[in-house]
Design a protein around this nucleic acid. Structure first.
Lengths: 130, 130
DNA sequence: GCTTGACCTGGAGCCCGCTCCAGGTGGGAT
DNA sequence: ATCCCACCTGGAGCGGGCTCCAGGTCAAGC
């Protein structure tokens, strides 16, 4: 299984992005032009897959595509942008933290509500026996 | 300050929903027809605000509007739907839990990446002194 | 030799959740 | 009396992020 290249289907399978999404990401430049075989079909490298893993992390944590594009750009520009990349990721990390905090807060409120409903039921044990 | 009704502006202020969003929620039935004054202007009750708080929790935790509508419906149907409401909220709670877990997992990966970048910088302390 | 199916392209379409607009009404402060 | 501003309605528009489609090209298995 040390195939050094992967077909679109394999990549979709592995990354969880749909074929259309993979093409879309390439179109908008989030994915650098992917290599092709003689017939013009995409052949992804291990590197491409690694980058897609990064994209997956950023998307799943709610980074908008515009910002991922910025990050992609920085990455392409080379090592001298590493500080900028760190700054970008750290800012994002803070947003993720806030996101989790908000989720937890709202979740607590919802659990409260569930508890309240349970109490209501406890007072009226049998639905139609009031 | 114990105004028993609130203007749209006050409600927007307090709930963080925009005026348009409040009207939109009423239009689609997420908010039951809000009371009006003689001139036809909305006057929200304390109850409306409570409900909006619930909506806020559900939205912020990613519940789609269609499902909030379902919840609203159940609520309007009365006490005999409490078990269904609990079920709905519990299912949602599980999704929220999964959401947080995924965020945490991806966040850890991103922090890893930041750590990696830091390592790269440590090896090349001065940007142009390679 | 033919079918099947994975893939290609460019472009249109879709869903969600708002957000904005035009044109109009009322009501409170000065 | 006047001004201004908050509010009203119905309906159109928008931004993000895909997703689908038509029409076509290879490549391998039967």
């Amino acid at each position: 299984m040390s195939t050094s290249v992967y077909t679109p289907g394999q990549v979709a399978e592995e990354t969880g992005f749909s074929l259309d999404t993979l093409r879309y990401y390439e179109r908008i430049g989030l994915l650098e032009r992917v290599g092709r075989n003689a017939a013009g079909q995409r052949r992804f490298t291990q590197q491409d897959i690694g980058w897609l893993g990064m994209i997956r992390c950023l998307r799943d944590t709610g980074m908008p595509i515009a910002e991922m594009l910025r990050f992609a750009e920085l990455t392409r520009e080379g090592e001298h942008t590493i500080r900028d990349r760190i700054a970008l990721l750290e800012a994002h990390d803070r947003r993720v933290e806030a996101q989790v905090a908000n989720l937890r807060e709202k979740q607590a409120a919802l659990r409260n509500k569930i508890g309240y409903y349970r109490g209501v039921i406890a007072e009226t044990p049998c639905p139609a026996a009031g």
